[in-house]
Design a protein around this nucleic acid. Sequence first.
DNA 1: GTGGTCTAGACCACC
DNA 2: GTGGTCTAGACCACA
Lengths: 119, 119, 119, 119
Amino acid sequence: MNYSDNRPIYKQITDYFCNQILQHKWSPEDRIPSVREIAVKMEVNPNTAIRAFHDLQDKDILYNQRGVGYFVAEHAHEKVKQMKREEFINEKLPGFFRDMKQLGFSCKELEELYDKSKK
Amino acid sequence: MNYSDNRPIYKQITDYFCNQILQHKWSPEDRIPSVREIAVKMEVNPNTAIRAFHDLQDKDILYNQRGVGYFVAEHAHEKVKQMKREEFINEKLPGFFRDMKQLGFSCKELEELYDKSKK
Amino acid sequence: MNYSDNRPIYKQITDYFCNQILQHKWSPEDRIPSVREIAVKMEVNPNTAIRAFHDLQDKDILYNQRGVGYFVAEHAHEKVKQMKREEFINEKLPGFFRDMKQLGFSCKELEELYDKSKK
Amino acid sequence: MNYSDNRPIYKQITDYFCNQILQHKWSPEDRIPSVREIAVKMEVNPNTAIRAFHDLQDKDILYNQRGVGYFVAEHAHEKVKQMKREEFINEKLPGFFRDMKQLGFSCKELEELYDKSKK
DNA sequence: GTGGTCTAGACCACC
DNA sequence: GTGGTCTAGACCACA
């Protein structure tokens, strides 16, 4: 687990889960690793891991079967994608555009940097 | 002051200061408003305002004359500009481009949103 | 077996048993299906099924003949009925009525929903 | 805090909050007691209290101001009411109707008990 | 002072 | 074995 990352750990875990789903590594109805497995693998307290599970359960991206484990919900892929896009547009873009204006960055410059970053 | 902004309040104030400098509204050796004036104007706790002054003092963008007030340091404009650009390119762009790719955002879409945000 | 039901699995099984008795499908001295049969039929872990048998044995609704199987006890029907009515009136109704008042549910509305649920 | 209640403690706290709002004791924009105050008052660990705050924040019934405290959100009353009605209809009524059928309770009997409970 | 996050460890219900 | 809840106590950022 990356402690120097500014994001809280539980958020890093939910992002990891979302990525697995976005990349189709985890599909609907798949049983995902248990709380304890994740906690051990990520070297994190189980309570911290649980928080990530709960977060995604609240958003209907995971569901739970008593005594069995957590599973990927139906349409999880679409939900994750939409959620991430909204997050991006609402939470990241405004600050990003503000910075661009402040620093006199044009869209054109940005595009050039973007093309470079692809290579 | 914008409490729904995700950035901490003191950061919003330093950004405001930097903006004033970037836009040449405040020039080297200018005396800037006092902590109290800023606190009142921005409807903010004076402790929070103080933190913003200290931050920029640490970065040699402001300097302090005891009993007199805060002043814009020499070369403040260049320092701010360089600092902000570095921050932007090194800390924000990589994550930003990663998100764009992952979510299938094109530069074109981005540009449209940017034009909208201007209005 | 209904995993999305909020009640624990073993409780769903005891309820099923009680229902069979209430509806006179199972009568005193009848031998009821074995633990294994129930487990297979309900697609449930045998340990979970065993727990249901034990629960009703504790309440003298079932009895066990070693090596033979489980049987419906005498007066099981009366016991079940009384037990369930008491449970319902004492444990469920008070909270239920409190909720109705708090949310402004009338008996009429309730009746409509009840009629719908029958279909 | 009622430990003999079957519901988890954090749920009892969210229900307390919802009741305050339903009864107009807390109105939009009101600052509600701090996490620590609630924890002390309810004789509960602050972490447990925090969980209740987060639950209602996720549902846009409370909102947070950094370093200041929690506030009742706009339209909290309507949201709480709707949420509680949905909970009632989706989670409580099905089991309730199932019990009624199983025990041969009619709507009329229920109504009589309801009228009695009012007195 | 406010809330946010994390850990370690306990105990419980359920499968 | 699974997850769910709770406690006690630490440390941090922010106002």
